[in-house]
Design a protein around this nucleic acid. Structure first.
Lengths: 211, 211
DNA sequence: CCGAAAATTATTCAAGCGTATAATAGGGAG
DNA sequence: CTCCCTATTATACGCTTGAATAATTTTCGG
């Protein structure tokens, strides 16, 4: 007949825990298994609490997606924005940072993969995706511009954008492949491939970025 | 009180229809919506029939995944295996074929995206994925070998494999990006980007493949 | 044209889902 | 120390799910 004892947590902490539990369950068992009861159990609370902090289960899952994207973004930008670096070094770090262990790992990929199928289905997910995608593209584009500024060869805006899209594709593709088949790559190999290819796209001599 | 009238179809045809209906529903509404009832309705039959042709709903969905992979593979190989072509032309067609409209389209991507999250979760999906992934890689590798044979510069096997992995990553990445954000690419642009980058990776002069 | 085999429909079932609501207990304010 | 607010638990509800089974219709060989 005894009720569970429990601890009253602050709102911020509780929401954070619930979102973390959501990402954990999705990473380990997929979106299908991410039910209110599973997530609540993982967070050490009962299901009803979720509706106390979120409008619906779906809204909580959206927040979790937002959180995932935010984490991926932060972990990359940290590497690229250290002070005192040349544009070349920052660009290089930015690209390599996207193929780092902190982003290219089984857990991140599992959650990303679970979500990507929803992007074209659910407008809420589509909006979150687009927002981060465009932000990423612009970041990359501005770093390319700075790099060109540094080397003296500037492309027109339209051309630069095309190149940013291409390099973005390279990063995505190698990230995907590296995540799925980690064993097939040597350490740093994925980053080198992207850097080399980026040199080609940018029309700079081999080694300008990759060395 | 009347029962539905129905048509007795041959086993092959019926299974094909059910798998097609499965892919349709997944493409339009995602895996979550791909329930026995939804799929049956789409195929114009009642739910019970699915269990008459498949051991379980999950098994049918696996067959659908297998079918998707097979379709993607066939549509590419057709372009690359036309007779009377040089190794260079076949390689070029193979790469470009992977960024064709018949593979790079919203429907294919939607289904692929719905499934990719299951690859690391369900061993059955993992096996199907791995099988096709390795087949693709080997195909690409053998075409690269033939191309090098033709141009006279042969890499050791280990190096060649590394280059195949890299180019595979390029193809995947641009395919992904082109599928998600078709509007960002001009016609043939994605293929050109991959071909140019492949030239770099292979160490052949610009234009060897892309022109 | 008849009878049997099998393809298909119809119905049922238990389990799990998200959500709503009522009961309770934690913990700071006074 | 006590009271009161509300974070949290507990329970219940209506729906949907995949699967099992029973009932019926089609088809085809003789």
């Amino acid at each position: 007949m005894n009720r569970r004892t429990f601890h009253r947590a602050g709102e911020v902490e509780r929401r954070r825990d619930l979102i973390a539990a959501t990402l954990d369950v999705i990473a380990e068992q997929g979106l299908r298994a991410a039910t209110v009861r599973q997530i609540a159990a993982r967070a050490g609370v009962t299901g009803g609490l979720i509706r106390h902090y979120f409008e619906s289960k779906d809204q909580m899952v959206q927040e979790a997606y937002r959180e995932l994207m935010r984490e991926m973004q932060l972990s990359v930008e940290a590497a690229a924005e250290a002070g005192g670096l040349s544009a070349r070094e920052r660009l290089r770090n930015f690209i390599a940072g996207n193929l780092n262990d902190s982003v290219t790992n089984a857990r991140t990929f599992a959650v990303w993969a679970a979500f990507i199928g929803h992007v074209n289905l659910d407008p809420a997910f589509g909006a979150i995706h687009r927002e981060h995608y465009l932000a990423f593209l612009e970041k990359l584009e501005s770093m390319l511009a700075a790099f060109q500024e540094e080397t003296g060869a500037r492309d027109p805006a339209a051309v630069l954008r095309t190149k940013a899209i291409a390099i973005n594709g390279l990063i995505d593709g190698l990230w995907l492949e590296h995540s799925v088949a980690r064993a097939l790559f040597a350490e740093g190999e994925a980053a080198t491939i992207v850097l080399r290819s980026a040199e080609t796209i940018l029309g700079v001599p081999e080694g300008s970025l990759s060395r």
